[in-house]
């Protein structure tokens, strides 16, 4: 991890301003929801684990769920000076780490997390301009506030910027 980079843990979220950057390590079935405002250069990153806070009674940690985490992220970004109408999103993660052939919903949590993330961003009118989701491997991501570039690093599956 580079110095000055803010670490976002599992079921956690944070926001920063240029020249800052945010990172979260080893996204598996979780999703890294990255949102940025290209003009004010405010960026936010959430590491969500589950699709829907309403489906679960133990939902006090807002950063754990796609719906509540995204809402909180936007709120925090606006507070830092972002304009809600300019926000753009990129998402990464949502892998299926274990190749269970079953159609068991629990085992497809990665896909469900991705769908839920898309749905909540659509609801908030934030366009998704890039995604790197699915497959069966982990991803470490870095979000840079200056231009919203989203660096994705993997073990054995290359590195790319979306």
């Amino acid at each position: 991890m580079k110095p000055g980079m803010i670490l976002v843990g599992m079921a956690d979220l944070n926001v920063t301003k240029a020249p800052g950057a945010l990172t979260t390590l080893g996204l598996g079935s979780c999703i890294g929801i990255a949102i940025f405002d290209p003009i004010s250069k405010v960026a936010g990153l959430a590491h969500i684990m589950l699709p829907d806070s309403r489906a679960i009674s133990n939902n006090s940690n807002v950063a754990k769920f796609a719906d509540t985490a995204t809402a909180k992220l936007v709120f925090d970004m606006v507070k830092m000076g972002a304009d809600r109408k300019r926000l753009k999103a990129k998402i990464a993660g949502g892998a299926q780490m274990f190749a269970f052939s079953s159609t068991n919903d629990n085992m497809q949590i990665g896909r469900r997390n991705a769908e839920a993330s898309r749905a909540v961003l659509k609801l908030l009118n934030i366009p998704i301009i890039a995604e790197d989701v699915g497959e069966n491997y982990g991803r470490t991501v870095e979000l840079y506030a200056d231009d919203g570039r989203y660096l994705i690093k993997t073990i054995g599956h290359g590195q790319r910027v979306i």
Binding site: M10, A11, L25, G26, L27, G28, S29, C30, M49, L50, I56, N58, N61, K64, A95, M97, F98, A99, F100, N106, I109, N136, Y137, G138, R139, T140, I155
Partner: peptide, 23 residues
């Protein structure tokens, strides 16, 4: 099923499963 990858990515699977009931 075996998976070899970053610790967090692999641990996300049991963490998510447990995340439904606790922290």
């Amino acid at each position: 099923q075996l998976s070899i990858d970053m610790a967090n990515a692999i641990l996300s699977v049991p963490a998510i499963e447990f995340g439904k009931v606790g922290d």
